[in-house]
Amino acid sequence: MPHSLPPPRLEVQGLSRSFSGREVVREVSFAVEAGQVSCLLGPSGCGKSTTLRLVAGVDAQDAGQILVDGAPVAGPGLHLPPERRGVGLVFQDFALFPHLTVTENVAFGLTGLRPDRARRVAELLERVHMEHHAQSYPHALSGGEQQRVALARALAPRPRILLMDEPFSGLDERLRDAIRDETLALLKEEGTAVLLVTHEPHEAMRMADQILLMRGGSIVQRGAPYNLYNAPLDRAAAGFFSDLNILRGRVEGALTETAFGTFLAPGHADGTEVEIVIRPQHLKLDFDRAGRGPAPTAAEGTAARAQVARARFLGRESLIEFAMDFDGSMLLASVPGVFLPSPGTPMWLMIRRDRCFVFAAS
């Protein structure tokens, strides 16, 4: 007989929760496999932290159920407490015990023989590079060091699921990427199923195997980071990952006229107001060729003339704002490295049509 696939490590089915008559989480469903990092991503107030609290068991849902390895831990008439769900928790304030040493913090909650507990603590402290601080107290540690200890403590009992609520938000920006990478490597080694909450798209893109994009209490789009970035559901989903340029037009015969020529608008009825969305890095620039022949064209489409309004250098890239000759609208272009043309400099802009999205106007 063929072998059946094991159930997901974590499965959430139709989860809902209301406070004072307002539905904060609405029929949320998703699954997280062992060794997978899934990220609840969305703006403040979208329901992601409430969803995490429901999964943890620190709050009870109004409807739906939660299963761990196929066994229900929450559902109609059932609500197991956090300590019986096999979950570990890491929060943004780290919540270390100030009166315990690093070793005692990591060992807290471990059961079994003393030598086994000591080996597990020593192993984790070495893996998070905190073995030299084993007898230090939390107040003597930096934010990044405290985060490492909190992670080691959460992983010490070998939880089947690790829940992380904005765990890196309190760190210095220079440390964040390094700490994230170290954390991700350790989680992958442990094979833990991870549910991470964040409002930072960069963090979700860097860490997640699966992004669950939330809005208004619901999951509106899910998938790998690459897919959400390159095939957003709508303008709001696209705008959550980067700045956007918006070209507006009206559909006539499945086409829309813009400063950059005609665009296809399949699936939109004639008369529909649409927005053509393009990210700043997909604008292409060329100096004004006025007086030296017609405006250039390219496979990407017709070029449009604009004047530089402002240019800023941001370290890895330069951002240039343009005022379009066509209608005075503003567009933003990003260019790698240093590129700081003076205000008023005329230039031609072209756009990558294969990187444009056409949505009904919001």
Results as ranks from 00 to 15, higher is better:
5 L>P: 12
8 P>Y: 05
22 R>A: 09
22 R>E: 08
23 E>K: 11
26 R>T: 04
28 V>L: 07
32 V>A: 03
33 E>I: 01
38 S>M: 08
39 C>T: 11
43 P>M: 04
49 S>C: 13
57 G>R: 04
68 V>I: 11
70 G>H: 06
71 A>Y: 15
72 P>R: 12
74 A>Y: 07
79 H>T: 09
83 E>Q: 12
86 G>M: 13
88 G>R: 14
89 L>P: 09
91 F>N: 12
93 D>N: 11
98 P>G: 08
98 P>M: 08
98 P>L: 07
114 R>C: 02
125 L>K: 01
128 V>R: 05
132 H>Q: 10
140 A>E: 12
142 S>W: 06
147 Q>I: 06
148 R>C: 01
153 R>T: 01
154 A>G: 02
155 L>G: 01
163 L>N: 02
175 L>G: 08
179 I>G: 04
179 I>L: 14
184 L>W: 07
185 A>P: 03
185 A>C: 08
185 A>F: 04
187 L>S: 12
195 L>S: 08
196 L>S: 05
198 T>E: 02
198 T>Y: 01
201 P>L: 00
206 R>E: 00
208 A>Y: 01
209 D>V: 11
217 G>T: 01
224 A>G: 10
229 Y>C: 07
229 Y>A: 06
231 A>N: 10
238 A>E: 05
238 A>T: 04
245 N>Q: 07
249 G>Y: 02
250 R>Y: 03
252 E>A: 09
254 A>E: 15
259 A>S: 11
273 E>W: 06
286 D>R: 14
288 D>G: 03
296 P>H: 14
302 T>V: 15
302 T>S: 14
307 Q>Y: 15
308 V>D: 09
309 A>Y: 10
321 E>Q: 15
325 D>I: 07
330 M>E: 15
335 V>H: 13
339 F>I: 04
342 S>C: 14
344 G>N: 04
344 G>H: 05
348 W>E: 09
